[in-house]
Each structure stands twice: as structure tokens, then as C-alpha cells.
């Protein structure tokens, strides 16, 4: 039996909450005893309440958020890492294997760099190419895959709309050939047409490059279409995880049911007020 690419074992992540108090500040359990396996080559969806810890969990897998308790293991057949305790060399290597596509395309792109330089930066920082020609080649290839043209590469990100910027950050995340990608609201800023296009692209890359995705999204219709498995988070905990079809056809947890019932209907005559999930009910 092959190991999952990512094994999250009873992980908790705490942040201090509040600053005006004397003594030890109360902690916020952003992630609270979470366990999850991400099989190699799969597309795993992470959905749930806003503020429930999805981004924090994704960042912890990438070693960008502190792990308070528990263990995260990365194992791609080539290397086997305990993500929480990587040495300097191993961390450098891990950064080429695991990448993030950001939630907020505006915060993510430096305004003073051209699009070409933004996409090339990971290659240059990690010294993955031997010459400028090779870098340019890699940038052009991935840019074309993300449907950015040569003229776009010379421009600065401020001149792009939200959706266009998101394609730039996708190109940037994929340029160094990662095996694992956390896509955090990666298509939220895209219009439905480009969204369909990018999702098809991500699915094609998943197959062609044997990529594994943790796909964080609020758009349940999108998740239903692209993910193999779905995990539902509420208040720092995973409340339910199941193969996609099963979860949508037969939600087990009450929070999942509330979530599915809140998907906005395309029918203007099917308007109703929000149902609020009550964890104590």
C-alpha cells in the first residue's frame, strides 16, 4: 500500500487572541486536533465556515504557520519529511515540492515587478535554473499554460484585473514544478468562464504531472466538480470527510447539511433567508 502524500496527524494550531488583557492572553484554537490524509495524485477539497482554520491548516502543511501540537508528514516516494522539523537544506528542498496559490491576488503580487519577474522569482530565489534563457523558457511555458501572452509578461500587475492577476499567481506557483499544491480560493476571483478554463487546466495538470491538490474553496459547486474527496471544517475541526459524490448526495453532519442548503440558487424565485447552524442544537 502506498503512503498518502500528506498525512496530518492530530494537529492543533493556536494563536494568541486579544491584547488588552493582563496575564496570559487567551488562545484561539485556529486548528483543533485535525487528522486528514491526502492521497497522492488526488484533488482534496477543504470547505467550511469562514475563519474555521482552512488557510491556517494549508499554511501549516507548507510550513508557513506554526504547528502547536501533532505531526504533518510529507512522503512522495522520493523523500519522506516530518514537516514540523525540517532542517535548512530539507526545508529548501521542500519549498520546491510544495507550493501555494494565494487567496488574495492583490496582496500576493509585488507592484514593482513585471509579470515576468514575478513568475520567475521562485526559480531565481531557489536557484533552480542555470541561465536567464532557461528561466525565460520556463516562464514562457507556464505562462502559456495559464493563458498569459508575451505582452502580459512585460507589464506590471497593477494594470491587470483581479482574474488576470490570479492567473499570474497560478503560473508563479507552478513554475518550479511542485508535486503538491495548496490552492486557497484559487478561482474565487475568476469569472465563470475563466474559472471553468483554469479548473480544466488544474485537472489536466493533476493528471499530466501527477500533481496533488488541497483545494480550499467556498464554492461548493466547483468543489463538487473537481474534487475527489471533501473535508468539511467548522470551528477548527474537521466535522466530516467523504468522497465527493457521497458527501453531496448524503451529507452526514448537520453543519454540512446547513452548508449545502445555503448554496445560492440560480432561480430568482427561490429566495429564502439564511439558515444559521447551531452547534448546540
Amino acid at each position: 500500500m502506498t503512503l498518502p502524500l500528506i498525512t496530518i496527524d492530530d494537529v492543533s494550531i493556536h494563536y494568541p487572541l486579544g491584547r488588552r488583557l493582563i496575564g496570559t492572553p487567551p488562545v484561539l484554537k485556529a486548528v483543533d486536533h485535525v487528522s486528514l490524509e491526502i492521497p497522492k495524485g488526488s484533488f482534496v477539497g477543504l470547505v467550511g465556515e469562514s475563519g474555521s482554520g482552512k488557510t491556517t491548516l494549508g499554511r501549516a502543511i507548507l510550513r508557513a504557520a506554526p504547528i502547536t501540537e501533532g505531526r504533518i508528514r510529507y512522503s512522495d516516494g522520493d523523500v519522506d519529511y516530518d514537516v514540523g522539523s525540517l532542517g535548512k537544506e530539507a526545508l529548501r528542498d521542500y519549498r520546491t515540492r510544495a507550493q501555494l496559490i494565494f487567496q488574495d491576488p492583490y496582496a500576493a503580487l509585488s507592484p514593482r515587478m513585471t509579470v515576468r519577474d514575478i513568475i520567475a522569482e521562485p526559480l531565481e530565489v531557489m536557484k533552480l535554473t542555470k541561465s536567464r534563457e532557461e528561466t525565460d523558457q520556463r516562464v514562457r511555458e507556464i505562462a502559456a499554460k495559464c493563458r498569459l501572452n508575451l505582452e502580459h509578461l512585460r507589464r506590471f500587475p497593477h494594470a491587470f484585473s483581479g482574474g488576470q492577476r490570479q492567473r499570474i499567481s497560478i503560473a508563479r506557483a507552478l513554475v518550479c514544478g511542485p508535486k503538491f499544491v495548496v490552492a486557497d480560493e484559487a478561482v474565487a476571483a475568476l469569472d465563470v468562464s475563466i474559472q471553468a478554463d483554469i479548473l480544466n487546466l488544474l485537472k489536466a495538470l493533476q493528471r499530466d504531472l501527477d500533481l496533488t491538490f488541497l483545494f480550499i474553496s467556498h464554492d461548493l459547486s466547483v468543489v463538487a466538480h473537481v474534487c475527489d474527496y471533501v473535508a468539511v471544517m467548522y470551528h477548527g475541526q474537521i466535522k466530516e470527510q467523504a468522497p465527493t459524490r457521497q458527501l453531496f448526495a448524503n451529507p452526514g453532519h448537520d453543519y454540512t447539511k446547513t452548508l449545502l442548503s445555503a448554496i445560492p440558487s440560480l432561480d430568482p424565485d427561490d429566495r429564502h433567508r439564511a439558515r444559521v447552524y447551531d452547534p448546540d442544537a
Binding site: 469562514s50 476571483a189 452548508l259 445555503a262 439564511a274
Partner: peptide, 10 residues
């Protein structure tokens, strides 16, 4: 866009 559907509905 950054809200879950239950909060969005609220």
C-alpha cells in the same frame, strides 16, 4: 467571494 455560503447568505 471570500465568505462561506452560510455567512454569505447572512
Amino acid at each position: 467571494t471570500a465568505l462561506d455560503v452560510t455567512i454569505q447568505a447572512q
